[in-house]
């Protein structure tokens, strides 16, 4: 077993464990803390797969922005511990979930049968960089770029320029919606 595999299994352990922590912890504040661990573990996994730019963004966006939002909301509203739903008390729901999980596993097993046979052939190489050829518009010469962030930013501002601008519009609408939903109604209006 080489070092990337050991790292992969460590991160897998952290990810699955913290995801179970989010889902099954009774206190929402501790669920949020497990979610922070989940996001950091996922960023480590991205870095292991060779996507350093996405790992950075994962930490910045999720841990830095979204988790602060979650913790602020938990702080603003009174949260009490929740009694977890007792699975055995609701036999019908338990049967439905079990059957769905079994059917899904079976379908997944059949679907990936081909992959399972060819062991060791389909690998993700984290060290291989992307490369793309870009044109310098002022001098007209072509140059090859290989850095992760550079390649993604070229794709973002050339091929995906319109979706990129539309995403900014979506974020603006989300900000306005958030303000509108949380604003107090003034009683002075007749």
């Amino acid at each position: 077993m080489n070092i990337p595999e050991i790292l992969f299994y460590s991160f897998t352990f952290i990810l699955v464990g913290s995801a179970f922590g989010v889902v099954f912890h009774r206190n929402p504040v501790k669920s949020a803390m497990f979610l922070v661990l989940f996001f950091v573990g996922l960023a480590a996994m991205y870095a292991l797969l060779g996507a350093e730019f996405m790992a950075t963004l994962q930490v910045l966006v999720y841990v830095g922005a979204i988790m602060v939002l979650f913790l602020f909301v938990i702080m603003l509203i009174t949260v009490r511990d929740e009694a977890l739903l007792n699975m055995s008390s609701n036999a019908g729901r338990t049967v439905i979930i079990t059957v769905l999980v079994l059917a899904f596993s079976l379908q997944f097993w059949v679907l990936l049968g081909g992959f399972m046979k060819a062991k060791g052939e389909h690998v993700v190489n984290g060290a291989a960089p992307y490369s793309t050829e870009v044109m310098n518009y002022t001098t007209g010469e072509k140059l090859l770029i290989t850095g992760n962030a550079e390649v993604i930013s070229y794709a973002l501002f050339e091929k995906y320029l319109l979706p990129f601008e539309l995403i900014s519009l979506v974020l603006l609408v989300a900000v306005l919606g958030g303000i509108l939903l949380t604003k107090h109604k003034r009683e002075t209006l007749q």
Partner: peptide, 19 residues
């Protein structure tokens, strides 16, 4: 990247609805 932006928007609106 786009999924991250949509997730941020979803979290903002969802938590506003929670409040």
């Amino acid at each position: 990247l786009f999924v991250m932006a949509i997730a941020a928007a979803e979290a903002a609106v969802g938590l506003a609805i929670v409040i």
